[in-house]
C-alpha cells in the first residue's frame, strides 16, 4: 500500500471542512513562498512508515481557525490557543493518514513552530508531496515528508 496525493488531499479537505464548517479548495500548484508570517504544525510518524506530516498556515488564517475552534472573538485568541488549534489540526490529519500507510505506525504529539517550513527539517527525510489549498483568500500548504533512512545505522 502506498500513500497517494489524492488520499492526503481528501483527508485535508475533510478534516478542514468538518472542523471549521467551511471548505478549502486545492490549488493546481503550490504558490511561491511569501513574506507573510506563517506557522508550521507537524506530527511525526514512526514504525512501518517513517516521516512527518506538516501543515503550513498563514498566522492570520491560523488565528481565525483558532477563534472558530474556541468559539471566541479573534481578538480574544491567545498565541497558545492558536498553537493548540493548529497542532490539533495536524494531529487529526496525521491520525487519519495512518490508515493509508503500510505497517503499524505511531504518531507523535503535535508541535508548532513559528516561521516557514525551512524551520522544520526531519533528518534523512525528503519531500514526498506538497499541496496547497485556498481558504478565505489565504493559502494553506500540506507537506508529507518521508524518511527512508530511519532505523538504518551509518556505516
Amino acid at each position: 500500500m502506498s500513500i497517494e496525493e489524492a488520499d492526503v488531499c481528501k483527508i485535508t479537505e475533510s478534516v478542514w471542512s468538518t472542523t471549521f464548517g467551511f471548505d478549502i479548495t486545492k490549488l493546481a500548484e503550490v504558490p511561491a513562498a511569501t513574506t507573510e508570517p506563517v506557522l508550521t504544525a507537524f506530527v511525526l510518524l514512526a514504525g512501518g512508515w517513517d516521516g512527518a506530516l506538516m501543515i503550513q498556515c498563514p498566522t492570520a488564517l491560523a488565528r481565525r481557525c483558532a477563534a472558530q475552534m474556541f468559539d471566541s472573538p479573534i481578538d480574544a485568541v491567545t498565541d497558545s490557543d492558536v498553537n493548540d488549534a493548529l497542532g490539533e489540526l495536524a494531529n487529526m490529519i496525521g491520525g487519519n493518514l495512518k490508515s493509508h500507510l503500510p505497517g503499524a505506525c505511531t504518531l507523535s504529539l503535535p508541535a508548532v513552530v513559528d516561521g516557514h517550513d525551512s524551520g522544520v527539517r526531519v533528518p534523512g527525510s525528503h519531500s514526498l508531496m506538497r499541496m496547497a489549498f485556498a481558504s478565505e483568500g489565504e493559502v494553506l500548504v500540506t507537506i508529507l515528508e518521508r524518511n527512508t533512512t530511519a532505523g538504518k545505522s551509518a556505516a
Partner: peptide, 27 residues
C-alpha cells in the same frame, strides 16, 4: 475520541474494554 483510526487501534480499544471509538474530526 481520537484521530487514531486504524483497524488495529480500534481492535485494541475494544479488546481493552472501550465501548466505542469516535473518530476525529467528528459530527
Amino acid at each position: 475520541v481520537t484521530s487514531e483510526v486504524t483497524a488495529e487501534t480500534k481492535q485494541m480499544a475494544l479488546d481493552t474494554g472501550a465501548l466505542f471509538l469516535i473518530t476525529k474530526p467528528f459530527t
